[in-house]
Amino acid sequence: MSINVIEVTDLSVRYQQNPVLENISFSVYAGDYVAIAGTNGCGKTTLIKTILGLSQDYSGTIKLFGEKIESFSEHRRIGYLPQTSYLSRQGFPATVREIVACGLLSIKKFPKRTEKKDIASVDRVLSMLKIERLKDKLIGRLSGGEKQRVLLARALVSEPELLILDEPTTSLDPSARNDFYETVSELNKQINVTVLMVSHDSATVGKYASKLLYLNRQIVFYGSFQEFCISNEMSRYFGKFEQHLICRQHNGNNNDKIS
């Protein structure tokens, strides 16, 4: 039996009296790679921010690793990559090492200090993502793709069991985007990191994710890609051609891996 990493029950979120999410219930299990998709304003980012405890105006229950979000304290088990644009915090005067080391604060007790082993952990994760050469560069001087990898490194440095990514490929070109998806997919497959990723790019993310959660204020669809491919509801949302395209991407990628 897989561990229930995220358990959301009857979640409704309001923003300035307006409903943003209604009656959301779903579970994510250890090792899942869930892509959250939907049109602009459908509540994707609100959903993950509420799961992370960043939104207070909600009803329902959210449990992370079996513990209610209100009392959740094991932040080190979660790695988060927020939605950022290439230009955001452009002039911030911090090196890549300093930024990535932030990810270790969740495992440190007061007073939080950086030790030699922390620098080693930072260098190890930079090396794993093949960006060790950037360690002394200022974050503001990196390209969009490099910056996203650095923020992914920050999310991974505490060795989390759950990785939450909010539109991580928005500012990336197609090649950097594929590289990024490949990296996350490898983490999911090789070290069994559970992934929850918001993406506009249903077709590409479909190539790597194991499940799709389609939102439109409510959950329109939540299931595996095999179920997605035969869902009439999804045919209506995506159109038969788009649905077929996503299924081909997903199946093609998995067949490649089998062969």
Binding site: K49, G53, S73, P82, F92, C102
Partner: peptide
């Protein structure tokens, strides 16, 4: 005493919150 917390708060307040 709060150097690292103030640093991450300055870079990204929401991210700081997710670190507890």
């Amino acid at each position: 005493l709060f150097y690292h917390e103030l640093f991450v708060l300055s870079y990204d307040e929401e991210y700081a919150h997710t670190l507890g």
